[in-house]
Simulated scan of single mutants.
Amino acid sequence: MVRLPLTPDEIERGRRLGAVLRRARGERSMLDTALAAGISPETLRKIESGRVATPAFSTVAAVAGVLELSLDAVWAEVAGPVGASLAS
């Protein structure tokens, strides 16, 4: 299967998603968060760093659930206008 290159908007949304999840994780370890979500710590690291800009919905839902984030809240921050900054 050939994957099409990501658009700049998709890359930006991936960065936003990573920032939202990283901020929500706070002091909780990446290892504990990843294992509780049923993913590898490497996958979580790649998502948080924006290297995986389009993770599977089930992966995002699992991490959001562990971090007690609603998917609506995640999407509201991730899908904002391109160029908008996230509140820290």
Rank of each mutant, 00 (worst) to 15 (best):
P5Q: 06
A62M: 07
G38R: 05
V20N: 09
G18Q: 00
T43L: 14
G80Q: 08
S58N: 11
W75H: 15
A56V: 12
A79W: 00
I47P: 09
R25S: 05
L35D: 04
S85V: 07
A34K: 00
L44C: 09
P55H: 03
R25I: 11
E42C: 12
P55R: 05
R25P: 05
A76D: 15
M30S: 13
V74K: 01
S58L: 12
R13W: 05
I39D: 02
V20S: 10
A34D: 00
E42Q: 14
T7M: 06
G80H: 04
V2H: 09
A62E: 09
R22C: 05
P41V: 03
G18S: 02
A24W: 11
T7F: 03
R16T: 09
V2C: 11
L69W: 15
E77M: 09
V82Y: 11
G80C: 12
L21C: 14
P41F: 04
V2T: 11
R45C: 08
A79N: 08
V20P: 07
I47T: 04
L44W: 04
D9C: 11
T54R: 10
T59D: 08
S49E: 04
S29Y: 02
L6A: 07
R16K: 08
P41C: 10
T7C: 07
S70W: 15
E77Q: 13
A87N: 15
L71W: 11
A61R: 14
A56K: 12
T7W: 02
G18R: 02
G38N: 01
A36R: 07
E68R: 14
G18F: 00
A87S: 15
M1C: 09
L69C: 04
A62G: 06
T59P: 01
A62Y: 10
T43S: 14
R15D: 03
R45G: 12
T54A: 12
L86W: 01
P55L: 00
I11G: 08
R25M: 10
S49H: 03
V74W: 03
G18E: 02
I39Y: 01
A24E: 06
A36S: 06
A61T: 09
L67Y: 08
S58C: 15
G50V: 00
G38L: 06
V78K: 01
R51T: 08
A84Y: 02
T54Q: 10
S70G: 08
A87K: 15
V82D: 14
E68T: 03
P81M: 14
A37D: 05
V20H: 08
D72H: 13
A37I: 06
D9R: 13
S70A: 11
P8C: 13
G50N: 03
I11H: 03
D9S: 12
P55W: 01
G50L: 00
R3Y: 10
G38T: 08
A73R: 15
L17A: 13
A37V: 04
L6R: 04
E68L: 13
P41T: 05
D32N: 07
L21H: 10
R28M: 07
L35H: 10
S70Y: 15
A79I: 02
R23W: 14
A76Q: 14
A34E: 01
P81K: 15
R15Q: 03
P55M: 03
A37N: 02
L67P: 01
A76S: 13
G14D: 04
G83Y: 02
L35C: 12
A36F: 06
R23H: 13
S49F: 01
P8Y: 08
A61M: 13
K46H: 12
A62N: 12
A87E: 15
I11K: 07
G38Q: 05
T54N: 13
V63Q: 07
